[in-house]
Amino acid sequence: MLKVVAIDDEPLALRQLVAYIERVPELTLVAQCQSAVEAAGVLGRESVDAIFCDINMPDLSGLDFVRSLLSGGEAPLVVFTTAYSQYALEGFEVAAVDYLLKPFSMNDFQRAVNRLVERKQQQLALSEARSQQAAEGARGDDVIYVRADHRTHAVALRDIRYVQAMGEYLRVYADSHPRPLTTLLSMKRLGEQLPHDRFMRIHRSFIINLSRIAHFAKGRVTLNDETELPIGDSYRTAFEERLKKR
């Protein structure tokens, strides 16, 4: 459902625009305005998804109005209605979802609405992806940095299968790297960087990614790449408790 505002200074033109809006179930008319100033007031008070705006309104041209909208924060989507040719309008380079050339049919109008709906869905998907990214970013755990082979590798947590201790070194086995990354780091230090809800130490020498477990039996766990790893005696109880919870 899109909340829209209709703007046209000519009463009949506005009435026709409103009649079209009322025929489309996806649209809710928030206000109909005869001037840009009036519309600016509405947009200040209400949240609006899209505006249908005439160009060539006398008090403030539709283009200036939309430009001023776009310069501030969350701008609604714009469909221009106009008696100019589309060609004349494109020169102004104001981002509009569509142009409706007067007079326009219900079909033309529906086409513009379809484009609006599509654009709104894209916007929503984008902002969802952004907020998800932001949430992950806030936890700061999507990537760890591993120093190996004289460079620093960014390794996504979801790619890590398990980590093995080799004396003073660690070996990080990850899908993103065909060979394990060998790095000078202690199990303790790495354990602190890995989120405890996704990784677990099962042995003096092994930390596994819990989402990679294929099956486990007494004293042994098998990952879904068929790697078999021992479960240390002192870790067994904690491990079994943990898997019961999941």
Binding site: L12, A13, Q16, A19, N56, S85, K102, P103
Partner: peptide
């Protein structure tokens, strides 16, 4: 003026229903 012509047609278009 093409602008006059198109706006006039648009108004008549609305008038047809009203």
């Amino acid at each position: 003026n093409p602008h006059f012509l198109m706006n006039t047609l648009n108004n008549i278009h609305a008038l047809i229903a009203i």
